[in-house]
């Protein structure tokens, strides 16, 4: 029961993240989402009685909930972007669309075979697929490079949740490797955003296709 509640509220946090154009609130919603995923991992470790997942939960909390969120907050402050104007879909409509995607994810996850020992196996699949789809939607409807990073991170969370709940997680070293990759990717993209801002004076990805002398 509490597992289902936690895992679905992380998907709900992702949906709520789509609804606002304020980059700061987006990052705060992302931070809550990862906090809920860390708690889910804790509960999962308790249910499955596997100690490596406690370490995993701690690493998620330190790297994603605190580290990446604070880094991105610092980055937005540094480059002085407050608001994402969005591309082709207004933010409220994108949020309602991602609610529909959540229903779609629920339908999809009901078709999945029972692999996990968990009672309510479909909630994990629902949250995982929904996070992946919401991340894609977030990347599609946003204009700023920093929002693209956030969408990518949301997708990564979805893949992690899906692997955790459907296949009882991957080996600890693989997970750690992924975390390191994500960490480095965000750092490098932060650096790139810095450079883009420096040379183009904006971080609007829709305008990057046009050539500049």
């Amino acid at each position: 029961m509490i597992f289902t509640l936690l895992i679905l509220s992380s998907a709900i946090m992702a949906v709520l993240m789509v609804g606002t154009g304020q980059v700061r609130s987006n990052i705060i919603f992302y931070s809550f989402q990862t906090l809920l995923i860390a708690l889910t991992t804790c509960v999962f470790a308790y249910v499955e009685n596997e100690h490596k997942h406690y370490i995993l939960a701690l690493v998620i909390f330190i790297v994603k909930t605190m580290g990446l969120s604070l880094f991105l907050l610092w980055l937005t402050k540094r480059i002085g972007t407050a608001r994402d104007t969005g591309t082709f879909l207004p933010h409220p409509l994108a949020m309602h669309l991602s609610v529909l995607l959540l229903i779609f994810a629920q339908i999809l996850s009901c078709q999945l075979p029972h692999l996990s020992k968990l009672e309510d196996f479909s909630a994990g699949g629902t949250a995982g697929i929904s996070l992946i789809l919401t991340g894609i939607l977030f990347m599609l409807t946003r204009r700023l490079a920093i929002s693209q990073v956030l969408g990518f991170l949301t997708m990564e969370n979805g893949i992690f949740l899906f692997a955790l709940t459907q296949a009882s997680g991957m080996p600890l070293f693989v997970e750690m490797g992924i975390f390191l990759d994500v960490f480095v990717a965000v750092m490098i993209s932060g650096l790139l955003i810095f450079r883009i801002k420096h040379s183009f004076e904006h971080i609007d990805v829709t305008l990057l296709t046009s050539l500049k002398d």
Binding site: L16, G21, P92, M95, H96, V99, Q106
Partner: peptide, 21 residues
């Protein structure tokens, strides 16, 4: 304002989805 009001609608949609589920 519509951005803010959309959150109320989203909450309503969530409530209905959970009820149907």
């Amino acid at each position: 304002c519509p951005d803010f009001i959309a959150y109320a609608l989203t909450m309503g949609m969530f409530a209905c989805i959970v009820a149907l589920r």
